[in-house]
């Protein structure tokens, strides 16, 4: 019991919430593509890694651009990459007879992107010096700059997406496409263009996750392997297809895995998310917030 008495519980809460928002962003990205195409994009880990390398490897380290400019260029570049992937891979894949083939297609895409990243930027991990690495201390609790940005940016992204989907013509068109592509096409919506736009937003979001994760995990090809899977779990737990569910699921998993180490050996920390997902799939497959698609 003495170990519990000495623990800084607030630190566990802060870390759990911050990590939860990372998982929430990943789940949001899954949800975007799932709603648009009906596919689960298993290449999204590589998208995130690509965003981190573009930001840290090219725009900051190679071109020595200011962080803000580098962030903007990364988001633009990732959006353009998203359009390319949508046109060449996701749009053709979604029309395949069996969705399993399409899933495998995204897995292969992931491998290709990962190796292209390694060939282009090399296999040695690196850090982005001076980027969101400072921290402030309140009593014995540490608030890192990166955690604060993760929480703030995540809230802005989710609220922004909701506003976009509800109050813009393009957003409403995306919802129509996600609900019924044939009906959307009959209503005059360009389905392919709408999907391209969704994937572009999703890829830009991946770039943003990569940027936010760089100070947490450094930049390497395996930097978000665990976070990417846990983001999927967050989506399932929160309710696949629901953006608010992604946030709820992410924070729940972030907190559970932090507090789980108090009761289990720390090495099982990464197992918590998967155990929780299995429990939800068995008992409440619709997740905490049952999805109403956007």
């Amino acid at each position: 019991m003495s170990i519990f008495a000495n623990l800084n519980i607030l630190q566990f809460v802060v870390t759990g919430v911050a990590m939860g928002f990372i998982y929430a962003l990943v789940a949001t990205e899954y949800t975007l593509i799932f709603n648009a195409t009906g596919l689960v994009n298993f290449a999204h880990e590589s998208f995130i890694v690509l965003g981190a390398y573009l930001f840290g490897g090219t725009f900051v380290r190679a071109l020595e651009l200011p962080f803000l400019v580098a962030i903007l260029l990364t988001l633009v570049a990732m959006a353009a990459f998203g359009v390319m992937v949508s046109t060449i891979v996701l749009n053709p894949l979604r029309n395949l007879q069996f969705i399993t083939y399409a899933m495998f297609g995204t897995m292969m895409l992931s491998r290709i992107i990962s190796e292209v990243v390694r060939l282009n930027w090399g296999p040695i991990p690196f850090s982005v010096k001076g980027f969101l690495r400072s921290s402030i201390r309140i009593g014995s609790t540490v608030l890192t700059q990166s955690y604060l940005y993760i929480i703030g940016v995540s809230i802005v992204v989710v609220v922004g997406l909701q506003l976009f989907f509800r109050h813009t013509k393009a957003g409403k068109a995306m919802i129509c496409v996600s609900q019924n592509k044939t009906a959307a096409a009959l209503m005059g919506i360009n389905v392919t263009k709408s999907i391209n736009m969704t994937v572009a937003m999703s890829a830009a979001l991946c770039g943003l996750i990569g940027i936010l994760c760089a100070p947490l995990y450094n930049v390497s090809t395996g930097m978000v392997s665990a976070a990417a899977l846990k983001g999927f779990c967050a989506g399932v737990v929160g309710g696949f297809g629901s953006y608010y569910g992604a946030i709820v699921g992410g924070i729940l998993i972030g907190l559970l895995e932090q507090f789980g180490v108090l009761f289990f050996p720390t090495v099982y920390k990464d197992v918590v998310a998967f155990a929780v997902m299995i429990v939800f799939l068995l008992l409440r497959p619709g997740g905490i917030i049952r999805a109403k698609k956007a």
């Binding site: 630190q11 990590m19 995990y217 395996g222 930097m223 180490v261």
Partner: peptide, 17 residues
């Protein structure tokens, strides 16, 4: 910890405690 674990904050907190 796992070989490629990139977040060891919980480990450190437990060790401090």
């Amino acid at each position: 910890h796992n070989k490629d674990d990139a977040d060891l904050s919980a480990y450190v907190q437990k060790a401090i405690a």
